[in-house]
Design a protein around this nucleic acid. Structure first.
Lengths: 336, 336
DNA sequence: TTGAAAGCGTTACCAC
DNA sequence: GTGGTAACGCTTTCAA
């Protein structure tokens, strides 16, 4: 495993010169440059990241904190992020978070040492204290899928998403409409879910439609919970004719429950989701689409710029749209 | 940002002793141990990974190569891997691969330097040359979702999976059966797909069912291809009454195509997938289930052991099972 | 334009 | 049981 010294010897120069050449520093003669490059190439030399980090005092890896298990959407964002980052010299240190405490512990760890060049949080808005801690440690931060103050973000207008969903359901003729979303205890995406719900209810109210309390199902964002909530909904004396799920991941559970109760979608029950994950096509799910992969790509762009000391405040909002598939339709006639 | 020297000074010992305490070495007095620990805690000290890597000559990060975009199953495996690894001192360097060349370039890079403590390949079997290169560089390797010689693997019996799928379709009464899988050009999972198909055809043949050439659709594993293939199948004068998709990801496209042609699943067309990804529930997809998350967890276990210099040859096979949902049923009466 | 040498924070060997 | 110190591979300041 060749070191910088080996290259230096082979090229007949000092290690300092090799370093200069390899990091593209200008003050070096063209002739020695080619000689060094040739030597490096011949030896198959590539610098030790560890030694570089140590000498430079900063790492070339970007910490990505993402709750992969929660939602297939997260992986799609991550993929977009990784693809965009591949062209750079940075690589990804992945932290797959599951519970609440994990996030906090982790961020402290990340802020702690020079181990990380920057951190990006996917679908996991940091608290103001966490933002401050990261800032104090001079670690650039970008957040994907949330809009938080004093941080560069890539986000969508969740309220607008809720309104879009409401209009789809209203236009189809529904009046008995329920909502399955995230509970406050679920630290992931709670705010998001709430913003969507509130705007959703607003539009409904304007149309004279009120959502009764037992039609509101905030649940921990965990596999199985959305299904359970939907089962309860369908077992009501007067079940809803339509459900807005705060995410496609939750819509999976809604669809499953509907089938389990023998409710045909969309004949007996309309379902609209949020995200447009890849499998939404297979599920035939009508949904509010947001550009998942792109959100990751933009996140990568932002973090790269942030590392180059661009001033913060470059958040970007991505567009939402309605994708009509076959999980929505008019309410059953008997629902009158 | 405190260093080991700060801790040493504060505890009134030498840095060497601090190092010993922190890495749990036995030869240190209990009294000094507590003193050092207290000092470290008070300072909020945590060792610099870069310095450690440099001194130790090996990195504490594990390179994970995974084609995230290809298949939601990959993210589920990755999640299982990350969860199991979280308890260890290692962290994940994620390399999200898209094309063919990428994989090769990457592995060379990984083998190159001490940058990485080990590499795990998800759904991306290395070539013999690649295995050898990694071995030469003394980098432990584990492969998840493929069974390759001279490497520790976590895999399933793909042939068995194909047989299971065949029996499901046969038992339902199908005779006109098609297959949608991976093309040779698609470097990802080609072998897997082929093993499944061959065993699938074997069982069918035994039952007197032959798959005509135009019922065989090997396609690049890319979004949209499975759909296109299915469209062609459905447009045949005598379309199949059942389709075996080599993965749930491909089944998404199959389902989408069926709907687009107005074919009701399962009334007009039965579909069986492979993997049992999370959204298979939402799709109502009958499928051959393999433990995705667990595959990642076992992969983590293997790689951790491999790093501790356990001899190789510890591959583990995971079980397959049939999950019956609503995408399969008897063939339409008119098909006889 | 180039080289010598100090230093980055840790670990581990060798003495005591 | 503990301390001194070389070494890990690189970058960068200072001189030349």
């Amino acid at each position: 495993m060749p070191t910088i010294n080996d290259v230096a010897t082979k090229a007949g120069v000092s290690p300092a010169t090799v370093s200069r050449v390899l990091s593209g520093k200008p003050q070096v003669a063209a002739s020695t440059r080619v000689r060094v490059l040739a030597a490096a190439d011949e030896l198959g030399y590539s610098p030790s990241k560890a030694a570089q980090s140590l000498a430079l005092g900063r790492s070339s890896s970007i910490g990505v904190v993402a709750p992969l298990a929660n939602n297939p959407a997260t992986a799609e964002r991550l993929d977009g992020f990784a693809a965009r980052l591949a062209a750079s010299d940075y690589d990804i240190s992945l932290f797959d978070v599951h519970g609440a405490g994990e996030r906090t512990d982790l961020l402290r760890k990340l802020a702690d040492r020079e181990r990380i060049g920057a951190v990006v949080l996917i679908s996991l808005p940091p608290t103001p204290e966490e933002v401050e801690a990261l800032a104090a440690a001079h670690v650039p931060v970008v957040v994907i899928d949330a809009n938080v103050p004093d941080v560069d973000c890539v986000y969508v207008d969740d309220g607008e998403g809720g309104r879009l969903a409401a209009r789809v359901l209203l236009a189809a003729g529904h009046r008995r409409i329920a909502f399955v979303g995230d509970a406050a205890e679920s630290e992931f995406g709670f705010a998001k879910s709430e913003e969507r719900r509130i705007a959703f209810e607003d539009v409904l109210a304007t149309a004279g439609v009120h959502i009764p309390d037992d039609y509101l199902k905030p649940r921990p964002h965990v596999s199985g919970e959305a299904k359970r909530a939907t089962l309860e909904l369908l077992d009501l004396t007067e079940p809803p004719t339509a459900i807005f799920a705060a995410s496609d991941a939750q819509a999976i559970g809604v669809l499953e429950a509907a089938h389990q109760r023998g409710a045909d979608v969309p004949r007996d029950l309309s379902v609209i989701g949020f995200d447009d994950i890849q499998s939404a096509r297979g599920m035939g799910l009508t949904t509010i689409r947001q550009p998942l992969e792109e959100s990751g790509a933009y996140g990568a762009k932002l973090v790269l710029e942030a590392i180059e000391h661009r001033p913060i405040g470059m958040s970007i909002e991505l567009p939402l749209s309605v994708v009509n598939r076959r999980s929505t339709g008019p309410p059953p006639l008997t629902s009158g």
